[in-house]
Write a protein that binds this DNA or RNA. Structure first.
Length: 232
DNA sequence: GCGACAG
DNA sequence: ATCTTGTCGC
């Protein structure tokens, strides 16, 4: 059976059609939680590039950033890697992982863009529409849009815009003097709040603790745990 | 036609 | 995403 928005397309054309059909369902109004109790991070790791992947979700206490719940699923990529259709690759496994959580997080911080997407429907939007949860997209590199480097201090940002001037997101400095990240709205959050939540989840490193904990979890699940006494 | 192109 | 040593710096 299929839940609305979670079907896997058979062709690129079908994938575009699904995105076009779901895009109007994105909620761009809701400001989102200003003080979420929990924030979740989602990430995926790959092995042999096209054979296997591990999708992980970690739920953190929003204040202490301690992990309070997590789930990881090993599966096969559901779709080839096509820029702009990236979500179809990881979505099924990520949704499986989300279903296995005992705690329902108040906000999802996704590893990939939201509105900063060619058709304004990146992974973060897709996950938001399907789950109904507020979502934020955080990318390490850009997919679309033009921007100027933000000031060197943590918290500084500049607008990410398309050629027509439409704001797609922000280029946000999460750490002094370090390469900024790309933040965009996914679903049910304002851009201001999205950036605030990302900064709140990023006390020390370049990337939010949410993505760091999820990254570790799926990487470990894929490569197998290392036994004590063994290197690396 | 020639690049660019989330993970 | 992943393939990968050493090296600079707090």
């Amino acid at each position: 059976m299929s839940v609305a928005g979670r079907e896997t397309p058979g062709t690129v054309e079908e994938a575009y059609a699904i995105q076009d059909a779901l895009r109007p369902l994105v909620d761009l109004v809701g400001p989102g939680p200003a003080e979420p109790a929990t924030v979740a991070g989602l990430d995926v790791a790959y092995a042999d590039d096209d054979d296997r992947l591990a999708a992980a979700v970690t739920v953190l206490d929003a204040r202490s950033l301690a992990v309070v719940d997590s789930a990881v699923v090993v599966a096969r990529p559901a779709f080839g890697y096509v820029p702009g259709l990236f979500a179809f690759r990881e979505l099924p496994a990520l949704l499986d992982a989300l279903d296995r959580l005992a705690v329902r997080p108040d906000l999802l911080i996704c590893d990939g863009h939201g509105l900063a997407h060619p058709r304004r429907f990146g992974l973060a939007c897709h996950l938001g529409v399907v789950t109904g949860l507020p979502t934020v997209g955080v990318g390490k590199t850009s997919l679309v849009g033009r921007w100027e480097p933000p000031a060197p201090r943590r918290g500084a940002w500049s607008a990410l815009r398309d050629d027509d001037g439409e704001v797609l997101g922000r280029v946000l400095r999460t750490r002094d003097g370090v390469k900024p990240v790309f933040v965009s709205v996914g679903h049910r959050v304002s851009l201001d709040n999205a950036c605030a939540r990302v900064l709140a989840a990023t006390p020390r490193y370049r990337l939010p603790e949410t993505v760091r904990t999820a990254d570790r979890l799926c990487r470990d699940a894929l490569r197998g745990h290392l036994r004590p006494g063994q290197g690396r």
